[in-house]
Structure formats: structure tokens, C-alpha cells
Design a protein around this nucleic acid. Sequence first.
DNA 1: GCTTGGCACTCCCGGGTGCGGAGTGCCAGC
DNA 2: GCTGGCACTCCGCACCCGGGAGTGCCAAGC
Lengths: 348, 348
Amino acid sequence: MPVDDPMMGGQSRRLAVLRAIVEDYVATEEPVGSKALVERHQLGVSPATVRNDMAALEDEGYIHQPHTSAGRVPTDKGYRLFVDKLSTLKPMSAAERRAIATLLDGAVDLDDVVQRSVRLLSQLTHQVAIVQYPTLSRSTVRHIELVPITPTRLMVILILSTGRVEQRLVELGHEAGEDELAALRVRINQAASGVRIADAATALSTLRDDVPHEVAGLTDEVVAVVTEAMSDHRSDERVAVGGAANLARYGDSFDSAVRPLLEALEEHVVLLRLLGEATTGGGVTVRIGHEGPYSELASTSVVATGYGPSHEAVAALGVVGPTRMDYPGSMAAVRAVARYVSRILDES
Amino acid sequence: MPVDDPMMGGQSRRLAVLRAIVEDYVATEEPVGSKALVERHQLGVSPATVRNDMAALEDEGYIHQPHTSAGRVPTDKGYRLFVDKLSTLKPMSAAERRAIATLLDGAVDLDDVVQRSVRLLSQLTHQVAIVQYPTLSRSTVRHIELVPITPTRLMVILILSTGRVEQRLVELGHEAGEDELAALRVRINQAASGVRIADAATALSTLRDDVPHEVAGLTDEVVAVVTEAMSDHRSDERVAVGGAANLARYGDSFDSAVRPLLEALEEHVVLLRLLGEATTGGGVTVRIGHEGPYSELASTSVVATGYGPSHEAVAALGVVGPTRMDYPGSMAAVRAVARYVSRILDES
DNA sequence: GCTTGGCACTCCCGGGTGCGGAGTGCCAGC
DNA sequence: GCTGGCACTCCGCACCCGGGAGTGCCAAGC
């Protein structure tokens, strides 16, 4: 058994101390000392004993002392242990449940669902919230519509199972008759409707051989633009951000923490990387400080999870905040919102 | 002639002093004194003379002294005079022109144009940029498409001249045949295509009397949802925001300035009010500090203008920043971007 | 009459100092 | 292994002080 295994026999009080330190530090934002700790928690021992435990915890790297004769502050490793072993998800209050339900049920379309989720999540957690739009790649094609704008211009509209709509304008090399379009509309929908985006491209590519000779050119042009729209990664990268005003609560360490985060919030690619692998795996993912991919964001944590219809995660949502954040509360909020959003996607 | 008319004969040097104060203060962010002023500008007089002018300017309310024996800082009134009478638009450099052209020309659709404009504007001005999506109300209907999803469910797609696409799902009370839909599709487009949104509702309302009896119910349902989609103000309120990271440059006065602004950036209604009447009138609108509608934003200014195809302003764009900002540069950038975006909208 | 140099005055700002308090580590005793 | 006591460390805050920048005023000059 490794020497720094925190679950080692007889160390349960040590862990209680760590838990208390994390909770107090999150609440007060100030290094917590042994005396304050025994006053605020029922540890049943004296400050001196707590000090011994603290010294041990510090040796093991779970807490840290800003300077001699100061209180202790959890390290990233300490938060990690707290999240993994010491915390239980804070149940949502009835009021919070109601807020989630009433706010999200009023959404009229996918865009609205995402916007409301972001707002809700930031209000529940008092953190910056990030919601990724459902990705194209896992959704299916619901319908493809061809709309003539002028005789040589065609608007191709791609409707997906998630409710997303992609539109592309096609300049045709020649005029296209209404009959040809109608025929193509039927064929193309027969081939692609209900098919996953990932498979639709191949389904469409075989289409050319089946259509009447005279619309082959038209078919090629339309199929090309549909394929391009489906593979267009720009649409996979859409995210909504909300609650940036909560950054004002950072108080201390402005330049070192808020500026990089503000910059990150504008770079949606960065945000997607922050959400990271949250899409895979069922539970809520927590990335603490340096565990994330960006060294500038070493003092921020990400709590995220996947969501999507039919228990299939097609996108991720979560919150970003200081490492010193309320993990149980954030995790519970993220999970609750993800579940509710997933259910809404199921229904529509 | 009113006693505080700044253009009063023989006061040209006073105005030169005010201009110098504004320019120096914007550049250095520090109260500017008489000595530094004569060193950095060719005023041709001694510090003592400048001090007399400063005293007069202060009496008239154009500048202000944070405390005795400190330099002077422009007041909102001072900035106002500077913007109205003392500044000339800073011409865009060749590099900046090129940046605008190359960045915006790569845009693939309306969404992309707006996104790129926001980014561009914030980069050019180092301020927070706001771009309103073209409003529905002044644009025209290009096409209305009816797509059956299931026999009793219909997707109505509204394509506007600005490139915007609105979609609505309709639950029909009964099944609708392909033939009925085709007929309705033709009729509804005859009635609405090319018509301004504002007039389309009335045009559609007369439609019911013209259609065959058996599709009257269907027509009603579809017309209702189209009308609702067109009048839906939610779509008028869409704005894009960018460059929030520039807020990190605020340095001083964090709570008093950055927090309310961060909050405002999340409230799109507030942003639209900030852009205010910029849509009307040709030129660039400047709102300085307390001139705006929100007292919490008393230390921020807004530089905005309208834009739209055919020299018709259908939306506004602009930047928000501290009252202490580079007005000539911001105004030039806002105007240049608005012109370029308008031209793009013309072409498409 | 405007401009100018001189001069006394005001006030911010930064560095240095001293002190109280919170917290620790260690040790001896239970 | 826990506990109370004790000496020690170091931060944070208040206070003080001097330098410097800037002003307002005044008398003299163009």
C-alpha cells in the first residue's frame, strides 16, 4: 500500500480535516488555521492535534502554506482528493429544481434552449457557464430542402434531428427547372433522411448513379454543397457563454486569473478544449487547475458533462471558475441542467 | 453670445489646450499638468499661460481637477466638445483597410459576417465591440418554404433578404397532403415574396379569401405561424459581442466600471439600448458617460453607427469603452467597418 | 492687456517603522 | 496518541515623513 494513500487505515480524521479545510477556504477565501477549524467543525479534537494532521497533509501535498505562520490552502491535489473521495453532490433545492424546469420549458427552439441553459447554469453556480451546441456529427438528417432563389441560384437547407438548420447558397452553372428540383428533392431525401451525418456523405455519393441522366450535373452540385455543409467543422465549434459578470467576483489576482479567462472565453476553440472529454463517459468531469490543457488557466477549474437525447452525449456543457470553487454545488447544478436539457432534446 | 460658448472670438488657444489635454490624458491615463503639456505640444506659450487657460476651462466645466495640486482630467462635457468640434476622424491605415477587406470578404453567411465584424471591430479599437444582427422589420421576404416532417407536422422556413432564416414547427390539427402543401407554397410565396416584413403580415392576411376552400384551415395555421415569426421581437434583439478581454485593460476602477459593463454585456436588451438611435441618421453617434441611459455606465462611452444594404440602416454596430477612449480612432474604425459590412450586404 | 518667471502652498505617493494578532512548531505531560 | 503551553515567525495595518509634481497668485515685462 503506497505511503501517501489517503485511505490508509486510521487516517479518517485526516481526511475530515482536509474536507473541513476545503469547505472553509471555499467559503471564506482565506487561509484557514487550526483554531478556526475546530471552532467551526465538530472534529472532537484540539487545535494542536489538528496541527499535526495538517503537517501530515502538507507533507503529502494536499495543502499548502502561503508563508510561515499562515493558515493552510488546499492544493490542486487536495481539491482532487476532495472531489473524488470526500464530497457528495449537493442536492438541488426545490426552488432550484423549479427554476430549472420553468426556465427551460419555455424555450421555443434549439438556440433558445442553449441560451437559456447558459444563463441558468451561470445563475445557479455563480460561475461562467459554457454550453456547446449539439454537434452535427452524431445527429441525423431530418430533411433536405431545395429552394430556388433565382433560376440559377439555389438555396439548400439542411434540417437536422437536433433542430439545427444549415443553409447554403449554390450558384448553378445553368438553369434548373422546377421539375428537376422536385425530382432531386425526393431522391436526395430518400437517400439521406434519417441517416447519421457521418454516414450521409457516403449515402449521397452513390446517388449520382441512380438519378436520370439529365439531372446528374445538378445532383453533383447539390450533393457537393450538402456534403460540405455537413462536414463543415465551423458548426461543430459553436458554443454559448454566459455569466462573465461573475468574473467580477474574483476580487484578488485580477491579471493572473481573469484576463486569460476573458481571452479564453472569446476563443471558442479553447472553450471546446476545456470542455474536453466531458462528452464521453456518463458522469460529471472535473478538471482542476493545472490538470487542464492551458498553463495560463492554472488557477481555474472546469466542471463539465455531456448531454444529448436518448442518453447519448452529443455535446458538452459546464462551468469554469477558480480552483477555489464550490465543487459539490457546481457538479450538482451541471448534472441537473444536463439531464433536463437532454430530456428536452428527447421530446422534440 | 453665451458666455461659455467655446468658439467665442480669441479663444482658439484655449481649445487647443483642451484638445491637447484630451489627447494626452487618453494616451497616458494620468491627469495632465501644464508643464508636460507645453513640452509635448507646440503651443508656443509658457506653462503659466496654459495654467490660466486651464483655470478658465475648469470654470466652464470642460476639465476637472481630481484634487488640489493635481493635473487636469477632461469632463464628459470636455469630451463632448472634443468630439464635436476638435477632432477629425483618424484615417485608417493601409494595413487596417487591408485587414478589414480580407477578414470580412471571407465570410460565408450572415452569421459569419456578424461574427467577423465583432472580432474585427474589437481588434481595431481595443474596445468591446457590439454588432446588432440586421433587424427583420426592414428587410423583405425572399422565400417561404413548407417542409412536412410528419403527416401532421410542418416545418415553416422563412428566408429573408438579409440572409436570415427563421424556422418554426407547426402542429397541424389534421393531415396535410403533398398537393395541398405545394399549392399553398406557391400562393404564399406569390403573396409575400419581395414584400417588406412590415407589410407581409397584411399581404398574407388577405390570402385566406383567395385559396381553395379545402386548404383554408391549413392556410390559417401557416399564416399564423409566419406572422408570429415575423413579428417575433426576439429575433430583433440579437446582438453579438466581442473583445470583452479588452476590459482587462481597465486597470483602475474595476468594480465601478468593469462589473456593470460585464453585466450589461449579458443583457442584450441593454446593449440594444446602448446602441440606441445610432440606426437613424447617417453619421457616427457618440454617447459620452452620463449621456447614456444607464447611470451605472456613467464612466463608459458608446461609439456607434447604423449599417445596412442600399444605404439603409437596418441595424447598428459600435464599440463600448471608457469615457477616456480614443474617439477619433474608434469613430473611424466604426465607420469603416459599417461601410464595408453594408457593401457586403449589398452584394449578397 | 496678455504673457511670463518666480514663489509659496497643497497634496499625493512611496518607503520606512512599529506593533498587534493569527498561526505555527515543538515539547513535555497525561 | 492527544493535549495545553510556549516561544517564534510573519503578515497586515496604521502611522509618519520627505520628495515631487502641480497649482494659484503676483509683480514685472512685451
